[in-house]
Nucleic acid binder design. Structure first.
Lengths: 132, 132
DNA sequence: ATTGACCCTCCAGTAACTGGAAGCCTCATA
DNA sequence: TATGAGGCTTCCAGTTACTGGAGGGTCAAT
């Protein structure tokens, strides 16, 4: 199977598939004409990678998860550890973003948004504290 | 003033200050010895940039905000537009992350995390649909 | 004269792709 | 059989916002 078919079936774009080969996530054979030759197994792996990336796992996490996916003797605690770690990081990001949102929302609400220059947003960003 | 002092007073690291000069956010003069020579005004701008970055504004947003900060004739609607846009993007990111978190939390909870290979996380990522 | 703390520039790397150029390969149609 | 569309190849560069490090001047004090 050529890269285009695999892209369609896995949902991973050709460019990304080539990139994944570059970094060693998948290792397709080559046909005589130089084209990459994929199997069903590659489609599965790529779809797996697509799902994992959609859940925000890093490429390195994906590498680990993929090897666990292929490992009949994996222990589920290995998988869980990766997922829990990732979950924690997501929660940190959410917390940070929510704090930004709170501040921003407040500033946006206070700003008249008219033709005058006075602006609580600019004021909040301004380091007047230093002048005081 | 040298870069170290400015870094301390603005909270922006020297490396970052140099980078901001590279991309034209600030334009310090030079002393005869080749050192950057900063003024109070630079400290204010850098502190402003630091605050804006902490709220997640992109560098390009910062460029805009900084020019509005310096513009006596700005209209607050210009500032508000930038902030509202940014706020929207933050909310999108939060939504995306929350959806990831929901899925991940569910999977993590369902995973036994023991020495057996069976794992709902791996199963969820696996493209069994394709096989069916 | 020699530390030690600054400062300088330039290069490379980070994360995960994405776009584009230049150039084969293949298949269907005229 | 020629041709044109579309698919495949590689390689290079750009994206975001820095950060680390090498190699090398500068300055103030001892």
């Amino acid at each position: 199977m050529n890269i285009g078919d695999v892209a369609r079936q896995s949902g991973v774009p050709p460019k990304t598939i080539r990139y994944y080969e570059d970094i060693g996530l998948i290792r397709p054979n080559r046909s005589e004409n130089g084209y990459r030759a994929f199997t069903e197994s590659h489609i599965h792996k790529l779809a797996f990678l697509g799902r994992a990336r959609a859940l925000g796992f890093t490429i390195e996490d994906c590498r680990t998860l993929l090897s666990l996916y292929e490992d009949e003797n994996r222990e589920s605690m290995q998988v869980k550890a990766v997922a829990e770690d990732h979950l924690r990081q997501i929660e940190e990001k959410i917390a940070k973003l929510q704090s930004m949102r709170a501040t921003l929302a407040e500033l946006v609400e206070k700003c008249a948004g008219d033709h005058r220059p006075d602006c609580p947003i600019i004021e909040d960003l301004s380091p007047e504290r230093l002048a005081k």
